[in-house]
Write a protein that binds this DNA or RNA. Sequence first.
DNA 1: GAGCACTGC
Length: 759
Amino acid sequence: MVDRHSDPENGSRAKRQKMDAGDPKDNPYLAHMYEDANSNSAGSSSSLGKLKRHQTTAALARQVEDGDVNPFSGQRFSSKYFSILKGRRDLPVHAQRDEFLRLYQQSQILVFVGETGSGKTTQIPQFVLFDDLPQTQRKMIACTQPRRVAAMSVAQRVAEEMDVKLGDEVGYSIRFEDKTSPKTILKYMTDGMLLREAMNDHNLSRYSTIMLDEAHERTMATDVLMGLLKEVVQRRPDLKIIIMSATLDAEKFQRYFNDAPLLSVPGRTYPVTIYYTPEPEQDYVEAAIRTVLQIHATEDEGDVLLFLTGEEEIEDAARKISMEADEMIREADAGPITVYPLYGSLPPHMQQRIFEPAPPARRPGGRPGRKVIISTNIAETSLTIDGIVYVVDPGFSKQKIYNPRIRVESLLVSPISKASAKQRAGRAGRTRSGKCFRLYTEEAYEKELIASTYPEILRSNLSSTVLELKKLGVNDLVHFDLMDPPAPETLMRALEELNYLACLDDDGELTALGRLASDFPLDPALAVMLISSPEFYCSNEILSITALLSVPQVFVRPAAQRKRADEMKDLFAHEHGDHLTLLNVYHAFKGPEAQRNPKQWCHDHFLSLRSLQSADNVRMQLLRIMEREELEMISTPFDDKKYYENIRRALCAGFFMQVAKKDAKGKSVYTTIKDNQSVLLHPSTVLAHDAEWVLYNEFVLTTKNYIRTVVAIKPEWLLDIAPTYYDLNSFAKGDIRSSLMRAAERLARKEKMRADKHY
DNA sequence: GAGCACTGC
């Protein structure tokens, strides 16, 4: 690692903030002098009275904000309100309040670029509130976030700033929790939640202004919402839209929204010096470890953040760095180091540890200690850690990619984008000026990194999205104006899958089943399985399995205790497969023994309490929808010999396209139906390796092709449940076809015998 | 004989 030059892109921001020097009313410190001039010092309803909708100026808003009485709640402002208000007025966005209001008033759509620390997420919605006055229209202002925690914490903060109780005038709405009331006029919500609302209210008529925050993240929901809003604004001239984004891409948003005006506000961060390597690194993990140790040996006090790609890589690097650092302490009197791994599947209390202070010097006057955090991308967007001074960026992350040809999503370690690299570097400049060590050459940065990561919509299976769009009333998918249209093949695959699931008819129109399926927050195959389950007398059980398949892995397998964990899993194993094993786990979890102390029970049985609780939550949500749609909740008696068979049949009703047959020769090698992929059973399966036909939940592409979470089924069931997909004429001659033919003959024979009995 | 980056309804 050799340093080179400093990169101006994260250096000091030279943008000038405009000062409104002319009108003394614009000076917040003089505002109180004018407050009484409008003869309105008390009375809640009247203090907003001086504001006319879409004619508010910064000065007018300030007068109301500086009053004694909260104009929205009618209560007297607390003293805390005024101290917070003072801080808010120092935020960069405040200097441009008038400029913002003018643009907001003049145009229906506005693109707002505010960098980190500008205050956009908390302040802009309040600026809008004072001008849009949604309560006079019996409407609300919505501000979307890609993540739940953000929606919750920002709403909490803004409620404090506005001196109201969270859930009254300011609230939030996320899956499993609606913290709003009839009083609510400003609602923070996840983008997915707004999309759900749009499915039942195509014009989003409850809102007078909709703001999409963090639009640069380009989540699936944000992309679909943007396409939708582009249509809604045509039908609703009264609706205003603000697209809020960080960093570049602003022009792209502007162009997409018919050259909407743009407002940029500078952020408030410290300069970060960028260093590149002179030569490409062969082994980025090794280079990263070396760099961290070198920082520790030579750089001033300050914590280090290293980005790696996944759990194993991180744990491995953490071990090595700790070992090497111990040696440095012994041999070179280096300061102490604490290394914290950080990734999503880490239990919350372990994630919290990253906020502990760096270790102190080992003796008075000794070399200071240092904290090293080794993290996945979670520290790039979801979590911010103050006090980071050094960032080490090897330039890779795991990214989801989708292969429409074999209908498989997989994770691949890939080079990051320039936007990600900037975001990572920025993590070093939150509390003071910092340094970022990029473990690639400057030339590679310039020439090899793409400008920004491909949006999720280009990297995913679209069957859920296509179903959602149909439900949203978008009939012509090909001409639906998405910012980045997906590959036609991906779209075709989704339409085909939905057609086989009978969610779309042959003309591509939504069927009754499709409409019902879109009510469930589930992948279409899961939704169809659940809706069909009453026909198989096992909707209670399929509901549990569906919930378990929608949450992270419930089985925990710590590296040090694999054997013990596997033994515990065997306690729940069902000979016919993993779905049934999951059901056994759930039933045990809900049983009296486990419920006495769920935490202990899960720990003892190597199960994830978090996953099981979240499955329970999902199950309750799905149950409410089942009841609302009058789908019968029913079970086959447990002592009936068809109890498990009925469940396995019901699984086929949704997953008949995810089936594999064991090869005639070659042990435990399977071939998937129609796609003809050669696959292996994932080693985690409980299924003995002798099932001829299996249904799988997931295709995992790693060093080998694995199918994971599998259950044994019979080909007769497939012919019975999905006759169109299993039309024998559509199969090429071969092992699969002949096996299906024999199954068809067995079925016909049974039918005949049954018919004979009747005569 | 194992690879779940991260979100979301």
